[in-house]
Design a binder for these strands. Structure first.
Lengths: 308, 308
DNA sequence: TATCCGTGATGCCCCGTGAGTATCAGTTCC
DNA sequence: GGAACTGATACTCACGGGGCATCACGGATA
């Protein structure tokens, strides 16, 4: 009465049969398998009973494999190979030689730290594949907590319980203007100069905290900004600025390699601050592939090593 | 001390783990598997020990699958499916719904009974694939005895022990001549009329008995034939006749659909006789696929059923 | 023809191990 | 602060795989 859930047969049967089919000789096959010949005979008979088919024709002058036996071998062989490969594959995974890491990032990460990290990581861990997705902060924190995501580059809003984070960047934002904008030549810029300029921002749901801090910065400068568009991903926002539809915020690090139609200007006085962090779940502890990625991502930005 | 030959794990482990990974709940998974929960816990722990990897992270609020666990599932799933499919596939084979039959034939068989048999067989047994090879008699009998071949259409020479045969055709040979041959218009032909005509025959090694009977037929007619070419396969011999290089023997059944450049003439008086049989190994008994083929091949030629 | 060798199959016993029951240990929720 | 979950642990039982000894049978050999 144990074993209500019946397997059709055991791996034993298949391995034993394969050996007999290879050697066409019970005694020698039993020797190879390091079992006694009667045990082998019984196992094969058992397998034949389970499959209700005769797999071998035993005659005095040796053993022959029937058509059913050949079919069984054909089917079995690749499966046994596959099963045999599993332990070493798992070892490779455990040792971090191979693996997969799902990583999300924001436009700022891609414009600053990420390319370097990806380059270093692929050089050091060619066996680990990264699955990269651009994704806003709010979606990232949710996906991290549910385990859909291994780690993410995002802009922390409220504190994120159950996540560990490592800061990569903390910079005051400047303003990205169309090159033809009247304020473009003006070098030290203050927020209140921008009262009349339409702004392009990310949708508020993507990072309510940061969004509100931006509005608060305007308020404290005594102005109410005009939000012309909420757009995502980031690159599209820069595209709109380039097309002359408005201005947007940007950190100095991000303001490299800009197209000629736009100009970056730092802000004098209070300005919203951007933080870029790398975040991952505190529990369970990172698997080797993720640990490797966290190590590289940490090293690529600061000499100090990442915790854990 | 039993089980010197260690399998990395048992199918049990994989099936159990798959179920836990599906349900993410030990108790429910155990229920589905119709075992008690402790047994399941131990099996999973065992598997983790065998693989030296943690596959699940157990927490109060449920179970999660680790990266290693996901890899294991990915690898395991298709293999388990494959194993599960084996029994029914073997049943299908045993019942003759599917299968493979290696069949050899000679040119005469293809020119007479075989096309009809193939047509009938594929209609009746669409799941059984035939592997057809043109092969001379001597090679067929050797291959049949060694088991390389399931059955063959050939021309029995000496008696073939260990083979069973079923006669399909027995006909006196006539002569195939180039249409321009001086003897072509001559309706009743005798062997001795052909003394000066070069003959195209199959290589003697392909069927020494029949070859010698042909020569004997000439001898008894008082002539020694001129063998111009020994050629194989059969179709090439007919090609040579067509090209005017000589004559060859042929049965009336075979002499259908001839090209216009050749003429068939029966022989008056002693003439070599061709027998076409279907042969297969007496032991082991035919598997269902072969049995199906033998049945069709027998029925296609004679109303009487095949023995066995 | 009698003997021996080698084949795979059987009979019998042992004990390893998978599984069951009862229970524990730790959370979460009311 | 229990009640009701979770998965893990402790003990016991018995199924069945495997070992050893032996059989049954055929072929080779003298």
């Amino acid at each position: 009465m144990p074993r209500e859930y019946q397997f059709p047969f055991e791996l034993r049967h298949l391995v034993y049969f394969r050996e007999v089919a290879r050697q066409l000789h019970f005694r020698r096959a039993a020797e190879t398998l390091a079992i006694a010949q009667p045990a082998l005979s019984r196992a094969i008979m058992q397998l034949e009973a389970i499959l209700k088919t005769s797999l071998l024709t035993r005659s005095r002058r040796g053993v022959e494999v029937t058509a059913a036996g050949r079919l069984l071998i054909e089917r079995t062989e690749p499966l046994l190979r596959g099963l045999a490969a599993i332990p070493s594959d798992l070892q490779a995974l455990a040792s971090g030689q191979v693996g997969r890491v799902r990583v999300a990032f924001t436009g700022l990460a891609m414009a600053t730290v990420l390319p370097r990290i990806l380059h270093d990581f692929h050089r050091r861990h060619p066996g680990i594949r990264l699955e990269l997705t651009e994704s806003p902060t709010s979606a990232q924190t949710a996906a991290l907590q549910s385990g859909e995501l291994a780690c993410g580059f995002f802009h922390p809003d409220t504190p994120t319980p159950a996540l560990r984070t490592h800061e990569l960047l903390r910079e005051r934002n400047g303003v990205l203007l169309p090159a033809k904008h009247p304020l473009a030549p003006r070098m030290p810029l203050r927020l209140r100069d921008l009262a009349a300029t339409p702004f392009v921002l990310f949708p508020r749901t993507h990072n309510p905290g940061f969004y509100d801090r931006i509005l608060a910065a305007f308020s404290s400068a005594g102005v109410t900004p005009r939000i012309a568009e909420e757009i995502w991903p980031r690159a599209n926002g820069i595209g709109l600025v380039r097309a002359g539809l408005g201005a947007t915020f940007m950190t100095p690090s991000e303001a490299k390699n800009l197209p000629p139609e736009v100009t970056f200007r730092p802000i004098n006085g209070p300005a919203p601050e951007s933080r870029l962090v790398l975040g991952w779940r505190a529990l369970p502890p990172p698997d080797p592939a993720l640990a490797a990625f966290l190590a590289i991502a940490g090293a690529a930005t600061k000499p100090a090593r990442l915790p854990r």
